[in-house]
Computed example of a mutant assay.
Amino acid sequence: MSSLSLKKFVGQVAVVTGASAGIGKAVAELLVKNGVIVAGLARRVDRLEDHSKQLINEKGKLHAFQCDLTNQQEILTTFKKITTNHGPISVLINNAGLSIETNIIGGDIEKWKPVLDTNILAVAICIREAVASMKQHNLKGHIINVNSMAGHSVYDFPNASVYPATKHAITALTETVRLEINREKLPIKITSLSPGYVATDFIERAFGKAIDERLKSRAGLESKDIAETVLYILSTPDHVNVKELTVCVQGEIF
């Protein structure tokens, strides 16, 4: 993928949610190395600040923003800070995702709420704010929603509860926004990127160490694989819109 170029986004602002670890961290780093100004959003802002220092000599720059994506007002305030301090938004990578171990039959309602807020509502709010910035400055922007193969098929994975439903919602949300963009004839592209199992700390945080260790016995994608896929999507010509891109390990179901 070394021949791919982000020349059209050099010096422009990209927002990456969930940028403190895993896929988000890898995406933020690759964008910075390609000359993009990245506004990284996460609750663990200290990790973002440390990563920013590590990237100080790269072509772009990583700016750390603490943001709880379950808090609507915090999202709106953060986007205002980004555009005021760094300029209009050209790229949005909706990467942050959450799953909390419970079920639906007899499940814990309070565990459903933050998953729904993070995986659906926050994504929609971030899209609204990013598109407003792109429209105001007539930018050829790009939005990538990091979806999941669970957004297309429901696998027999115990205690995933509302997580597959939220990812199916992202599939529909992405297409809904694409149609809205088309109606307004905006020069903005939107993509649903659906990875299979990626070897990050997501599974352990969501379902505990036992399930994480079981999955580690099989092959998984690496965060950098998804970051390079993001680079491919963003590097496509203006007339090409990758609507959906699904990525999994060769030889595995997901």
Score class of each variant (00 low, 15 high):
128 R>N: 15
128 R>G: 12
128 R>A: 11
129 E>T: 07
131 V>N: 11
131 V>G: 08
132 A>W: 07
132 A>Y: 11
133 S>V: 01
133 S>P: 05
133 S>W: 05
134 M>P: 07
134 M>S: 10
134 M>H: 03
134 M>R: 07
134 M>D: 09
136 Q>P: 00
138 N>I: 01
138 N>S: 14
138 N>E: 13
139 L>K: 04
139 L>T: 05
140 K>Y: 05
140 K>S: 15
140 K>G: 12
141 G>Q: 06
141 G>K: 03
141 G>R: 01
141 G>N: 03
141 G>E: 04
142 H>I: 02
143 I>A: 06
143 I>C: 04
145 N>G: 08
146 V>P: 07
146 V>Q: 06
146 V>M: 12
146 V>D: 12
147 N>I: 05
147 N>R: 03
147 N>K: 05
149 M>R: 15
150 A>C: 11
152 H>E: 15
153 S>F: 12
153 S>Y: 14
154 V>F: 11
154 V>M: 14
154 V>L: 12
154 V>D: 10
154 V>A: 15
154 V>N: 13
154 V>I: 15
155 Y>V: 06
156 D>H: 13
156 D>Y: 13
157 F>E: 13
158 P>W: 15
158 P>Y: 15
159 N>C: 10
159 N>I: 02
159 N>A: 11
160 A>K: 11
160 A>M: 12
161 S>R: 09
162 V>K: 00
164 P>F: 01
164 P>R: 06
164 P>L: 04
165 A>R: 05
166 T>L: 05
166 T>G: 06
166 T>Q: 02
168 H>I: 05
168 H>M: 09
170 I>H: 00
170 I>C: 03
170 I>R: 01
173 L>P: 02
174 T>P: 01
174 T>L: 02
175 E>F: 08
175 E>R: 12
176 T>I: 07
177 V>D: 06
177 V>Y: 13
178 R>W: 01
178 R>D: 11
181 I>S: 08
181 I>Y: 08
181 I>P: 09
181 I>R: 04
181 I>W: 09
183 R>C: 08
183 R>N: 14
185 K>C: 11
186 L>G: 10
187 P>V: 08
187 P>R: 02
187 P>A: 10
187 P>Q: 06
188 I>F: 05
188 I>K: 00
189 K>T: 06
189 K>I: 00
189 K>P: 04
190 I>V: 10
190 I>L: 09
192 S>P: 01
192 S>G: 15
192 S>M: 04
193 L>M: 11
194 S>P: 04
195 P>A: 05
195 P>Y: 09
195 P>S: 06
195 P>Q: 11
